[in-house]
Write a protein that binds this DNA or RNA. Sequence first.
DNA 1: CGCTTTCATTCCCTTGCGGTTATATAGCCG
DNA 2: CGGCTATATAACCGCAAGGGAATGAAAGCG
Lengths: 134, 134
Amino acid sequence: MAIPFDVLAEPSRRQILDLLLERPRLVGELTEHLGLTQPGTSKHLRVLREAGLVRVRRDAQRRWYELCPEPLAEVDAWLAPYRRLWTDRLDALERHLDTMPGLPGGTGETGETVGSEPPDARDAPPDAPDGEAP
Amino acid sequence: MAIPFDVLAEPSRRQILDLLLERPRLVGELTEHLGLTQPGTSKHLRVLREAGLVRVRRDAQRRWYELCPEPLAEVDAWLAPYRRLWTDRLDALERHLDTMPGLPGGTGETGETVGSEPPDARDAPPDAPDGEAP
DNA sequence: CGCTTTCATTCCCTTGCGGTTATATAGCCG
DNA sequence: CGGCTATATAACCGCAAGGGAATGAAAGCG
């Protein structure tokens, strides 16, 4: 449990980040919003802390948790190569959405979307969509 | 296990997507790269399928798995509000990185980064970084 | 027509996570 | 100083996910 992906898999933790996106918060406040117990919140906060996604500032007994979004850059970096794909796809999709009833070779027509030609493709995948085969 | 966040939490599944990013692949091929057993691969592929992240094309007994990046848009959408934050932060950070030794109130000075003023902030978080308190 | 290839499904086990309850720690207040 | 507030930690539990071995199901091939 170190990389942000695991951390973000948890809805509560995403919610915490969303809350901290507005402003720093106290543990009690977060607990209130999350609807779980205080130790539960503390646990999630610990994970977020160790992942470097939040930071703590102490004020007497209280702890102000504030956002620390830098590690999210890793997620964004991973996501980057895909981003263009789905934007392209959405374009192409809605372009022939009212034109094609089935699922033609349209998925392949994005062609060199990533700019690299498959050098060692053993075969050429045909077009036979896989629904249910009874 | 439905939303892409959970799916991406698994390293093997991310790797599968990365592999499919280059070109469609057969299960055996993926298995080879992942270094786990074929049923294991099939299991992950099932999860990816149900999350709508991959699609299958049958060619006799073989299955060509191809990428289906649309659901990743959800992740990207969630990530969006944070993106600007860390870019801003990185700017500010390296700007006073060789200027400040400790951790001053600099984090707070990004102020209205999200453009919304905290309406009901109960208190003002002071600046006392929390290292180890022996 | 049986054998082989390719993949999916099932069964089982172990691990780790999320959650709660109970307890410890730190610091304010009266 | 005693008690209260706010948070962290520890101990425990239930459950589901990941992984492997075994089996089943299609489909080509000799």
